[in-house]
Computed example of a mutant assay.
Amino acid sequence: MRKEIVAGVYPTMLTPFKADLSIDFDAVERLIEWYIKKGIDGLFAVCQSSAMFELSKRERKELCQKTVEITDGRYPVMASGHVSDVLEDQAADLNDMADAGADALVLVSNRLAAPWEDDRIWMRNLEKLIQMLPEDIPLGFYECPYPYKRLLSTEIIKELVVSGRFEFVKDTCCSPTLITERAELVQGTSLKFFNANAATLLHSLKAGYSGYSGIMTNFHTDLYYKLCSSWKEMGDKAEELQNYLGNASTIECQFYPANARYSLIKEGIFSNLLSRRQDARLRQITESEKMEIDQFYAVSKQMSAIFSEKNQ
């Protein structure tokens, strides 16, 4: 039985590595249990944060399978692994995730057409791809910024709603105006939008978005869980928490995901900063950047104490 994709917080999972750059599945288990302890509603595995573009086909499937096994039905697991260029290979990518036990398959919006190709070509390719996927599994979309960002147009979103196959969109538009328009388009439908942008999170929740799925869950998941699950009851405190989360999210511009790996070392989850990303191999996180994360980490702990359930 596949678990339902419910509203809430879906961390974009990082992938820890051993010294030989193989996946450290012991650390994967620690990471999943840490997410759960902090408060989540599901997991987004084999995504860009997971280094899906740097993993082999076998590793992507194994990572999804291990995530499903460790989660053991406690939470829904969405997975992408949608990295190939040719449609038949894309279908193989996604079918691997389905075979590994994912509860939903997340397609990457930039895989279906080149930057210069229009929505007609994009839709034609989507229709072909869907024909090669299992009919009994929900689908989603991720507006992944790599290798280029392709936002879903209004017309495309309408088509996704009509199809009835789609239940999840990870939104990276970062635009309050567009967020409001998108929320209206999917109101009363099975398609849920999850914001990846911290600064606009409370605005999106008020507009009708279903939650958060972004990289800042790798720093302080609990604060996102608090806002997404309790913003209606929090009153002015919701704005106070939003102000912190929006400001804190500027750490994304530092050196992600190395900074998140360093933060998770402080949590006792990761054992090293090793990554397969080329930029992370060419330069190390600096001592000054580590100090910034140390200070960021301390303030996040203070905010977690302030906004913990027992104090609110």
Rank of each mutant, 00 (worst) to 15 (best):
E159W: 10
R150F: 02
K158I: 02
E181A: 14
N110T: 07
A183F: 09
V162H: 12
Q131W: 00
P147Y: 13
I130F: 07
L112M: 01
F193E: 13
Y146V: 13
L139V: 05
V106C: 05
W122A: 08
R165L: 04
L201I: 10
Y209R: 06
A198M: 08
W116A: 14
H203M: 06
A114D: 04
A196R: 00
G164M: 04
A183L: 03
K149G: 03
L160F: 06
M132F: 00
C173V: 10
N195V: 01
K206F: 00
P145H: 09
A114H: 08
E143H: 11
I130A: 15
N125W: 04
F166K: 11
T200A: 11
A114N: 12
N110W: 04
K158Q: 14
T177L: 11
L185Y: 03
P147T: 08
F194K: 03
A199N: 08
N197F: 08
R165K: 15
M123V: 01
K149I: 05
R124G: 05
F166T: 09
T154F: 09
P138T: 11
E117L: 03
Y142L: 09
S190E: 10
G188S: 13
Y209G: 06
Y209E: 06
E155I: 05
E184G: 02
R120Q: 10
Y209V: 01
C173Q: 03
L107E: 10
M132I: 09
F194S: 04
L202E: 10
L126E: 10
T172W: 00
P145E: 04
R150Y: 13
R182L: 07
A207V: 03
A183R: 13
L129H: 07
L129Y: 12
E143T: 13
P145G: 09
M123R: 09
T154R: 15
R111I: 00
K158S: 08
K170F: 03
R120S: 15
V162K: 15
E117M: 10
I130W: 13
I121L: 10
E135F: 01
R111G: 01
C173W: 02
D119P: 00
R165E: 03
F168C: 12
K149Y: 00
Y148W: 15
Y148H: 15
S109C: 01
A207C: 03
D136W: 00
Q131M: 11
H203I: 02
I156Y: 04
Y146I: 08
S163G: 02
L107Y: 12
P147H: 10
S210Y: 08
P138I: 05
L185W: 01
I121N: 01
A114G: 09
Y146N: 08
C173R: 12
G188N: 10
E117T: 07
K170V: 00
V108P: 03
S175P: 05
L126W: 05
F141R: 12
F168G: 05
G208Q: 12
P134Y: 09
L205G: 04
I157F: 09
P115C: 04
L112G: 02
E184C: 00
P147F: 05
S190M: 08
S204C: 09
